[in-house]
Every structure is written in structure tokens, then in C-alpha cells.
């Protein structure tokens, strides 16, 4: 054995240790970075929990009519989500499949509410659907008003949440392999049945998370709401009004309620998406060698 040979393993081992160390170091750095992000993201939540006074929460939530904003918010968001699901889903599908002329233009149009500050959306809605505008007059024939009404609240929430749902849904439809839809059609399914049997189930996890995102946006909508739907109070307005009149301590219980109401749906959707993700890529790659159990082999 030459001296070089004798040294080499040692050097190799040292190198291995060094790379392992570097890996550990970069791993630690990654962990630290992740922890920092988590910290920053959860900071407000921590502050909320730290400043909550259980007694204040109990008092605030047991006061007569205290839960009315919660009911209003949940109802309005549910209606807004229903509208988005009914109108946004076909739009998202058509966009994803390029069935619309000038798809880019549609995408941009959907993005506009996302790019504008919600306050500005609210102000523009005043011009669009205020009582003396043509739209407003049309609405009044239907005994609807888009000013300080439940309808106005729903409208504002739809505008704030629409981009999140439509773009999310478009992405999840686009992720559905078009070949699968073609196979279903060749197997005899007319388009509507292809959509129901293949497209929708495959896009469902993505649609659910888009829906969850939209839910969170809708129930937390404030900028456009404060302009066209000061009343009836949903949770964000209730928080704002309480903050203005009674200070931070009085408003925090409602923030907690908002969090508790807004969070479960996104969480459930996320967990569902995470559970179904491995199945989405069935065609993508070979699974680890599964014993070929053909009957001709035996």
C-alpha cells in the first residue's frame, strides 16, 4: 500500500465529514430561514393571542347581538362564494382550455380587481352600481340596492375574492391533462359528462383550495366593503367600528372570531389537497418497481 493510498481514505472521510457538515449547516440555515418566515407570518397571530383577554372575549361575544356580524359575514361570504362557483368556474375552465377569444385579455380583466387597491374598487363600484347609475336603476327595479345593503356587501366581497378564485380555478383546470378529457370523449362521453366525470374530479383539490382562498378573501374583505357596504356590519366592519369607538382591546375578540371562522375552510382544503396530491401525478412517473404480477408469468 502506498502512502497515498493510506492517506486517501482519511482524506475521503474528512471530505465526507466536511460535506456532511456543510449539508448540516445549509440545513440549519434553511431551517432558520423557514423559522424566520414562520415567525414573521405568525407574528400578528401571536400578538393577537398575547393581547386577548379571555374575559373581554367572553363579554364581547355574549353581548346581545354580538354574533350578528358573524352571521352576516358568513352568509354574505357563502353567497359570494356561490356566485363565484357558479359564474367563475365556467369562466376559469374556458380560460384554461383557451375556449375564449383573447384569453390573455380575459386573464388581465380578472386580474384587475387584484391589482387595484380594494378601496379603489369600492370607489369605482360607487360609480358603477350607485343608486343613480344605470346599473343601480336596473337593480332598483329588482328591489335591490348596492349601497349599504346585504347585496352591496356580497358584491364587494365578490369583487375582492373573484381573482383568487378564478385564477386559482384556471390553474387547477389547466393542470388537468387534456389528453384525459380526450380519452373520456373517445370512450363516448359528451362534453358535459367529461367535465363531470374527469375534469371536475381531477381539478377538485385545486378548486377547493381556490375556493378556500376566495372564502378567506371574501370574509375578510374590507376595503371595498367600507365604501359601499358600511352596513350591515360584517366582521371586518365590526372590528373597524369597534376599534374606532372602543379601542384595540374591544376589537380584538372580533378579530379572533374572524380568524376562527375564516381559517377552517382553507385548512381543510389544504389538507385535502395535500392528501390527494400524489395521485395527481399517476401518469408522470413510474412508481417504485411493483412486482409484475401478470398471469402469463406465473
Amino acid at each position: 500500500m502506498t502512502p497515498a493510498d493510506a492517506v486517501a481514505p482519511g482524506r475521503g472521510a474528512a471530505f465526507a465529514v466536511a460535506t456532511a457538515g456543510a449539508r448540516r449547516l445549509s440545513g440549519a440555515a434553511g431551517l432558520a430561514g423557514a423559522a424566520l418566515v414562520l415567525l414573521v407570518l405568525l407574528g400578528p397571530l401571536g400578538a393577537l393571542l398575547a393581547h386577548l383577554d379571555p374575559g373581554a372575549v367572553r363579554r364581547a361575544l355574549t353581548a346581545p347581538g354580538a354574533l350578528q356580524p358573524l352571521v352576516t359575514s358568513v352568509e354574505a361570504s357563502a353567497v359570494a362564494l356561490g356566485v363565484l362557483a357558479a359564474a367563475g368556474t365556467p369562466l376559469a375552465w374556458a380560460m384554461a382550455r383557451g375556449r375564449l377569444p383573447a384569453t390573455r385579455a380575459w386573464e388581465t380583466a380578472v386580474l384587475v380587481p387584484l391589482l387595484l387597491p380594494p378601496l379603489v374598487i369600492g370607489l369605482l363600484l360607487v360609480f358603477l352600481v350607485g343608486p343613480t347609475t344605470p346599473v343601480g336603476e336596473g337593480l332598483s327595479h329588482l328591489h335591490l340596492s348596492a349601497s349599504n345593503t346585504f347585496f352591496a356587501l356580497v358584491l364587494a366581497e365578490v369583487y375582492e375574492a373573484a381573482p383568487y378564485y378564478v385564477l386559482g380555478a384556471e390553474a387547477s383546470f389547466a393542470a388537468v391533462d387534456h389528453e384525459l378529457e380526450q380519452h373520456a370523449a373517445l370512450l363516448g362521453d359528451p362534453p358535459a359528462r367529461v367535465f363531470r366525470r374527469v375534469t371536475l374530479p381531477l381539478a377538485a383539490p385545486g378548486l377547493a383550495s381556490a375556493m378556500a382562498m376566495a372564502w378567506a378573501r371574501a370574509i375578510g374583505a374590507f376595503g371595498a366593503v367600507i365604501v359601499i357596504a358600511y352596513h350591515p356590519y360584517g366582521l371586518p366592519m365590526q372590528i373597524w367600528v369597534t376599534l374606532e369607538s372602543g379601542g384595540l382591546a374591544a376589537a380584538l375578540p372580533y378579530a379572533l372570531v374572524l380568524l376562527v371562522v375564516a381559517l377552517p375552510l382553507p385548512l381543510v382544503a389544504y389538507l385535502w389537497t395535500a392528501r390527494t396530491r400524489p395521485q395527481a401525478g399517476a401518469d408522470a412517473g413510474e412508481p417504485p418497481a411493483v412486482a409484475l404480477a401478470g398471469r402469463w408469468r406465473r
Binding site: H183, L186, A280, D283
Partner: peptide, 20 residues
């Protein structure tokens, strides 16, 4: 003729099984 009325059986190179 629309795809679903053609009665064509196509086994494509990628099997295209419905993953769900």
C-alpha cells in the same frame, strides 16, 4: 363527427388512465 360519437378506441402511447 364529435369525438364521443366516433366510436374510436385509441390506445395512446401514454396510457392516459384516469388517476382518480
Amino acid at each position: 363527427v364529435a369525438l364521443h360519437h366516433r366510436g374510436v378506441g385509441l390506445l395512446a402511447q401514454r396510457p392516459g388512465l384516469f388517476p382518480h
